Simulated scan of single mutants.
Amino acid sequence: MFIPLYDGVALRFMKHPNATYVILGLNVLMYLLVASGLLGNENRIDVVLGMIPAVVFGSAKIDPSIALVPGVLTFFTGIFLHSGFFHLLGNMLFLWVFGDNVEDAMGSLRFTIFYLVCGIAGALLFALVRQNSQSPLIGASGAISGVVVAYLMLYPRVHVFGLAFAWLPISIAALYVILAWITLQIGSALFSSDPEVGWWAHVGGIATGALLTPLLKRPEVPLFGTRTA
């Protein structure tokens, strides 16, 4: 297990990664609104705004009296919900460390599109794999997975500072730590029986991020560049 904390890569094309800040703020705001009860019962919010494969594919239904959005829109709304503080913290930490440089390489508008498409594609793959599941899929993990693989494709030689095994300070090239992370996501999707983790959403985000990064990056930003800081 590796917890990224800092990469030390300065922005080249913008002063502030405003899209990253806005996305992070929206996730935190939604978490606070749900946790405080201002949006109603937390479990109910997960059901009506989280993506439920069985509802999307028509084998189950949400009571119309509590439905807030059409089922297809939950591919979007579910990206901004989290199941608890540590779920939120983990995703936002990855966004904080990796998102600013990916946004810098793409520009704020293209990065926002990239983030949302990766999140939606991740949820779609999860839904296709588990079409009869009646558990809501929530969380930004699919979108974050796209951001992480984009970082790998843009800055593989940059050293990321963080905690190995959650306690050991270490600096390691993004290439190694992210490849290990990707391997874990794919392996878990194929072999894990834990229904509480949307591994296939992570895989969908990874695949979509890999496809979109060459298309959305700035022309002057190379793929697999030699930049180290």
Results as ranks from 00 to 15, higher is better:
Arg157Asn: 13
Pro64Phe: 11
Val147Trp: 04
Arg157Lys: 15
Ala180His: 10
Ala143Tyr: 12
Asp194Tyr: 05
Phe75Arg: 00
Phe98Ala: 03
Ile170Cys: 12
Ala173Cys: 12
Leu68Phe: 07
Val72Ser: 05
Ala105Cys: 08
Ile172His: 12
Gly84Pro: 07
Gly58Asn: 06
Ser108Gly: 09
Ser141Ala: 14
Leu88Pro: 07
Pro156His: 07
Pro169Arg: 14
Ala67Asn: 07
Leu124Gly: 01
Val160Ile: 15
Glu103Tyr: 05
Ala121Pro: 01
Ser108Met: 10
Leu125Tyr: 03
Leu88Glu: 04
Gly84Cys: 13
Asn101Ser: 09
Leu190Arg: 06
His159Phe: 08
Ile182Gln: 04
Ile186Trp: 04
Ala174Pro: 09
Val129Ala: 02
Leu88Trp: 10
Val149Ser: 04
Gly107Cys: 13
Arg110Ser: 03
Val56Lys: 00
Ile62Ser: 04
Phe114His: 09
Gly107Asn: 06
Met92Ser: 14
Ile144Met: 10
Phe126Met: 11
Leu190His: 05
Gln185Ala: 13
Ala105Met: 10
Ile62Asp: 05
Val55Ser: 00
Val148Trp: 02
Gln185Pro: 02
Ile144Asp: 05
His87Pro: 04
Phe165His: 10
Ala123Ile: 06
Ala143Lys: 13
Gly187Thr: 11
Ser192Thr: 07
Ala164Asn: 03
Leu190Trp: 08
Ser188Tyr: 01
Ala54Asp: 00
Asp100Arg: 14
Ile79Phe: 02
Gly84Asp: 13
Gly90Pro: 04
Gly142Gln: 11
Arg110Gly: 03
Val177Ala: 04
Phe85Cys: 05
Thr74Pro: 02
Ala143His: 08
Val55Leu: 03
Ile186Gly: 05
Thr112Gln: 03
Phe76Thr: 02
Gly146Arg: 07
Gly122Ala: 13
Leu152Gln: 00
Ile170Asn: 12
Ser133Pro: 08
Phe75Ala: 08
Leu190Lys: 01
Val160Ala: 00
Gly58Trp: 05
Leu125Ile: 12
Leu179Thr: 12
His159Trp: 08
Phe111Gln: 00
Gly84His: 12
Thr77Ile: 10
Thr74Gln: 05
Leu184Glu: 10
Val117Lys: 03
Ile186Glu: 02
Ser192Gln: 08
Gly146Ser: 08
Val102Glu: 09
Asp104Thr: 11
Val160Gly: 02
Leu116Cys: 07
Glu103Asp: 10
Cys118Met: 06
Phe75Val: 04
Ala150Met: 01
Leu124Arg: 00
Leu154Gln: 05
Ile170Tyr: 13
Ala173Lys: 14
Asp100Leu: 06
Val117Asp: 01
Gln185Asn: 11
Thr77Ala: 05
Ile138Val: 15
Ala123Arg: 07
Ser171Glu: 14
Gly162Leu: 09
Phe161Asp: 06
Met153Asn: 00
Leu128Ser: 07
Gly187Ile: 09
Pro169Ala: 09
Leu168Cys: 13
Ser192Trp: 10
Pro70Asp: 06
Ile66Glu: 11
Ser193Lys: 15
Ser145Ala: 15
Val158Ser: 04
Gly146Phe: 05
Leu81Ser: 01
Asp194Gly: 01
Gly71Lys: 00
Asp194Lys: 05
Gly122Cys: 09
Ile144Tyr: 08
Phe57Cys: 04
Phe85Val: 15
Phe111Ser: 03
Ser188Asn: 11
Ile182Ala: 04
Ala189Val: 03
Trp181Ile: 01
Asp104Arg: 01
